[in-house]
Design a protein around this nucleic acid. Structure first.
Lengths: 226, 226
DNA sequence: CACCTAAACGGACCGTGGTCCACTTATGGC
DNA sequence: GCCATAAGTGGACCACGGTCCGTTTAGGTG
């Protein structure tokens, strides 16, 4: 499983150097980050990681994802190209890291935020609120998301993706939804997958409301009432 | 919309040079191949197209998709590299053309084959039979399919994909399924999308039967009874 | 058959993702 | 503080996807 020395690219949570040991959230999934921990980068490596993510984020805002080359990121961060690859494995890894970083707000919202998404609401309520929230999030970051989807299988090992999956699966189980929770979770998430939502709304003019209706409808048909 | 002079890559059906004008199937979708027709290649171009597809297919069988380079295909077909790009636009276009070619049997089965998939069965029956058939097909060609999924949005403009979508939408309408047929069609197809099926069966050991159950269950919950 | 034009051709050329390896540096043990 | 060693670094290097443009050719017209 471990790909021989690429600490990043599907482990490191947010920003290692500053901040305390990080309160243990994201522990919903059994296989999420249990295997290897924060991976303790050497001081210089951690510093460079932040420099690189910052530079990439800046370049992304300025030039768009298409023009984000590994060399330009390296240059903007003031490091060598090899360093970028060592840290993030490949271009997709860098994009995923960027994305994971941006996902933290959404994660906070459904892991520990207020109702209806947070843990103080009943499971059914949380499920109904989850879909629209994800769609909003995807809408905000669609460029980055689309750009990070070069390898179709890799999607399933993206930390944020796995967290969503185990979260929905858990809620479905709690809400006593019909059918197999894991399968249904995949179907539900598939119905609001970023490329699909982008295609339907942007390229075919479907209003987002209709997609949200679809989400609620699907839940209800599996016995998850509002 | 038309990308300025790339006839192939999402139009030409199978093999232009031999065979009669092609009985008009694939006309289910209003926007499928209506815009430009068979595109009448010049004789030399048509011959080279076949040479290229043959060469690519051979190389694919021999070396696998990962090692299929545009230059090797060109060399194996005895043409220049530029010719490959002119015909298929890019690597993904070549892979899609290859895939579309291989999809013809499946298409024949659900467009004009015998029951339960073909037009002589009731819509509900056809729908239930469709999912498992698609999964079998995807299983047989998963390497090529996965390799062709580099651009997440492009999937929606692949002819075979569009045909499946309009087919399922039509059947759902005929079977008086609940909800919006187009949205449900996307959800259904998403639940048996090749990367997902591959992930669940090959990487997580889920038996295919369970996925088939999921397909039937989903249909039933939208009122499409066996 | 000669000629004309649009289409097709091919390979030199370029940029970028990704690898490799000789060199540098952080860090923990003594 | 010094050393050993594992980790990190950087840029030369390579291969492949994709573009460009001068040349060739199919095939219609007189």
């Amino acid at each position: 499983m471990a790909v021989r020395g690429y600490p990043e690219a599907m482990t490191a949570p947010l920003s290692p150097p500053p901040g305390p040991p990080d309160p243990g959230e994201a522990r919903t999934s059994l296989t999420l980050a249990a295997a290897d921990g924060p991976e303790a980068l050497r001081a210089d490596a951690a510093r460079n990681r932040v420099l690189l993510l910052d530079a990439a984020s800046r370049l992304l805002a300025d030039c768009g994802a298409a023009d984000l080359t590994m060399e330009s990121v390296a240059a903007a961060a003031g490091v060598g190209k090899g360093t970028v690859f060592r840290r993030f494995k490949d271009r997709t890894g860098l994009l995923i890291a960027l994305l994971d970083h941006r996902e933290s707000l959404l994660q906070a919202a459904f892991l520990s935020g207020p109702p209806p998404m947070g843990p103080d609401a009943p499971a059914a309520e949380r499920l109904h609120a989850f879909g629209p929230a994800v769609m909003r999030h995807e809408r905000d970051h669609h460029e980055l998301i689309l750009a990070s989807r070069t390898d179709p299988l890799r999607t399933f090992s993206v930390p944020a993706q796995r967290l969503r999956l185990s979260h929905v699966t858990l809620l479905l189980r709690q809400a006593h939804a019909a059918g197999r929770p894991d399968l249904l979770a995949h179907t539900l998430l598939g119905s609001i997958d970023a490329p699909l939502v982008h295609h339907l709304t942007c390229e075919r003019g479907m209003p987002v409301e209709r997609l949200e209706e679809g989400w609620h409808d699907l839940l209800i048909r599996y016995g998850v009432e509002h």
